[in-house]
Nucleic acid binder design. Sequence first.
DNA 1: AAATATAATACAATCGATTGTATTATATTG
DNA 2: CAATATAATACAATCGATTGTATTATATTT
Lengths: 345, 345
Amino acid sequence: MSTDRITIHDIAKILNIDSSTVSRALNNSPRVTEKTKNRILAKASELGYQRNDLASNLRKNKTNTLGVIVPRISRHFFSSAIAGIEETAYKLGYNVIICQSLEQLEREQKSINTLLANRVDGVLVSISMETENYDHFDGLRQRRIPFVFFDRHCNIPETSSVLINDFKAGFDATEHLILQGCETIVHFSGPLHLEIYKNRYEGYKAALLKHQLAFNADLVFSSKLMEQDGVDNVSKMLALPDKIDGIFSANDVAAISAMQQLKKNGIKVPNDIAVVGFSNETISAIIEPSLTTINQSGFEIGKTATELLISQIASGSKNIVNERIVIKARLIERDSSQKRKETVD
Amino acid sequence: MSTDRITIHDIAKILNIDSSTVSRALNNSPRVTEKTKNRILAKASELGYQRNDLASNLRKNKTNTLGVIVPRISRHFFSSAIAGIEETAYKLGYNVIICQSLEQLEREQKSINTLLANRVDGVLVSISMETENYDHFDGLRQRRIPFVFFDRHCNIPETSSVLINDFKAGFDATEHLILQGCETIVHFSGPLHLEIYKNRYEGYKAALLKHQLAFNADLVFSSKLMEQDGVDNVSKMLALPDKIDGIFSANDVAAISAMQQLKKNGIKVPNDIAVVGFSNETISAIIEPSLTTINQSGFEIGKTATELLISQIASGSKNIVNERIVIKARLIERDSSQKRKETVD
DNA sequence: AAATATAATACAATCGATTGTATTATATTG
DNA sequence: CAATATAATACAATCGATTGTATTATATTT
């Protein structure tokens, strides 16, 4: 049995009926009698019929597909966000196309074009570190394709986003270090044109202010927060005249590579320098000392963003395109910041 | 400017020419003169025209899209394989749709249906742990859609795959433990109906045999090799009458959770028990002690599998569907297995 | 049994692009 | 300049499904 390219027309011809009836039967329309429905279904499965979604979607002008653009799927936060997205989309009858920007603006733009060409019904985006210009989102807006930012959002009007309170998280992380007795805290920041990093940075400053610690711009290192950046930041930090006793890193990756670099320099964490990261990567609980960090549930963020997006798709072009949902994030205290208590060994 | 749904027909009407000419111009056909081509391109970009790939693909009966099915994208091996796949596909003009089976057979089957419905040109698969039955691949075969297994393959005739030599890797890992002085080595295996785990297991046995160590089936624990399985395996192991001095785990995840569990039990790695994992997850170099493991380049496997798949797509239905490419994998010796040398602290 | 209502199915246009063939316009040649 | 070659564009069918409308077949009512 060659199941090569069976169409509704083939089935129609064999059963000597019209293809529209076949189509309706396969879509379980009440306009087809139970008896013919069964005949059609039986023949379809006998021939191994498989609907051509290209044709169907073209005609219906609806793909039931969501596009997702993330910096990279290998980051724990993003892969769990994708898990949440897929789970939710799947339940609500949507497929998902995933694109990685790899932190490059150009790939982000290309991804949007691909998604547009594939006529996705909506898009979920967490922008790349290079993204400072948002023109590429105009294409989506002009075509009235709903899109929702999650985590790495843009502060442009008429957009929806699902985020955590980065300001508060940055504040909490920094205050935690202060309460541990840290007095000279450096901040590893990401690119400050990204809202999330700006907000974490503002939270850091606010915590210093509250506790009457001087803010010193020299103690803030901005980078892409990759592994090498953690190493580089440590070098810069050690070259400072100030004696550093705390690090608040805007992600775990840089925090962890910094901790390793500190170890190589014979500096003890947390006793000499306490460290707090951000994101709660899987590894953060496992390394030694375990890393104090901000836990943000990627799964929940992904789930919420997907629900919001699909509700916008369902509502047609009624403009509720300005929603902002804040997901709870909280500090997980682990060993890397326990200056006061004895660390269990 | 409402760029809502501009088609070649709109452009044709405005310029008072035929849509076929517009189509040819947009595809840079030599059949359209440079002058009209420019007029068309200018108007297209002015209107923000964006080709409808659904229509195009439907007509051409070619989507230039590859489907990828992996157990889960959060595993380092798979996310780097996907990086290799995307990179290669992208260069050769293909898009990629990624599906996660989450180790469930049902989701693997559904994914195949989705990919079939979306008329992908080819599929790359690494099967789930539940997959013992391969009927769902018949749909691909009947429709003459090429597919290539990578890493987790099936031993069924007329299929191509890109793999490492799991037997040799298992052998090397085990022999390494033996050369370190281990005499009673347990093996954490995955489901033995999967070729890769069977082969690693056979490699383990072969190494024991070569070095005249008795094989004992009680020392082999088969599981899905998740985090909890590592913990459970340690309990089982400690309940054995034998004094264990080595573990060869068929993945890093189980190896690492086992090491943590051993630590909780006051058992020293590597001095009391040496451990070797498999896959070289990112975390494996970072934990303490760092984990000796088999490095398999996901990127290279993904790249090679994609090249093979695309070459099969390009060659039409000429049957070269029986290729098997073996990618080098090698042991990375780290601290978790250094019984003889002093471990640097 | 005729008249009407309703159920079941057929007809035909459509989604947006592609492509083989036909036609018209320009260029070349003798 | 007429005859032919060739370039440029137009025509029309097609990919596979969906869906509003028209038609035929069956059921209901009087």
